[in-house]
């Protein structure tokens, strides 16, 4: 029994060593494995490098994938210390199983994207239905379009887009090129785009995507100290600033 377990630990150590940076700090650094949703790639990379600067004794290995992929990896026993998903439902599948308490660390809401300079003079959701305003949204069949419909309903506005695109990228393309006066997209997508500006969308909080994070218990039964510290770093004001710069809202 002992020999196979030892071999497994050895293989895991080798795998972790392969991921470690070449310049190791003094001592034996602990490796912290963070699993994060793909949409968090940019912000997590920044938060991780800040965290490593503050914790020279810790190496953080981040793995990005779709939330449901990450959740099934955790449930199948992949060694991980922290899990951050892009929605609460996926996190719930893990937290029900592992007795953890996820915390919401970021939110994402819809907003109005306008071309640089706001040539259409868009001031908010009501001006989207003004005569002559060229509006582009996601199609109601896809998630961003379904969310758009709910926000429009909450605000009592009747939107008549000239085009209903299959994804946010195509909406942003129409706005950035100036063909459309306005488009409804996610705040984080807008933050990444060039040539567009934001106009606040009233009642955007009718549909809020919440991003939960949780420190995962080890075999011993509770999360490691460093895992807890990492979660705290994400929730800290510094972490929040990184998230805000990428368009994420506060929980």
């Amino acid at each position: 029994m002992r020999a196979p377990r030892f071999a497994a630990v050895g293989a895991a150590a080798l795998a972790l060593a392969a991921c470690a940076p070449t310049a190791l700090p003094e001592g034996r650094p602990e490796t912290l494995t963070v699993l994060a949703a793909s949409s968090l790639a940019e912000v997590m990379t920044t938060i991780v490098s800040d965290f490593e600067a503050d914790h020279p004794d810790v190496n953080v290995a981040v793995s990005f994938a779709g939330s449901s992929t990450l959740a099934s990896q955790v449930l199948e026993g992949a060694p991980a210390d922290v899990l951050a998903t892009a929605d609460e439902a996926t996190m719930a599948t893990v937290s029900d199983e592992l007795e953890i308490e996820p915390q919401i660390f970021a939110t994402n809401t819809l907003t109005i994207a306008v071309p640089a300079g706001n040539p259409g003079g868009i001031t908010g959701v009501d001006s989207l239905s003004d005569a002559g305003v060229v509006l582009v949204t996601c199609a109601p069949q896809v998630p961003c379009g379904a969310a758009t419909a709910l926000v429009a309903e909450a605000s009592g506005a009747t939107l008549s887009p000239v085009s209903e695109e299959s994804n946010v990228t195509d909406v942003l393309g129409k706005v950035a090129s100036g063909e459309a006066d306005a488009g409804i997209v996610y705040a984080t997508d807008l933050a990444r785009a060039d040539g567009v500006e934001e106009v606040a969308l009233e009642h955007a909080d009718a549909v809020v995507n919440r991003y939960p994070i949780a420190a995962l218990p080890h075999a011993s039964g509770s999360p490691s100290q460093h895992a807890r510290e990492f979660v705290a770093a994400v929730l800290s004001s510094e972490g929040r600033a990184v998230l805000a710069a990428a368009g994420f809202g506060a929980p």
Partner: peptide, 17 residues
């Protein structure tokens, strides 16, 4: 052209959606 039912959403665009 964009994608709007009956105006610009041709069969290939409908398939894409």
């Amino acid at each position: 052209a964009g994608s709007l039912a009956g105006v610009t959403r041709t069969a290939p665009l409908e398939i894409y959606l």
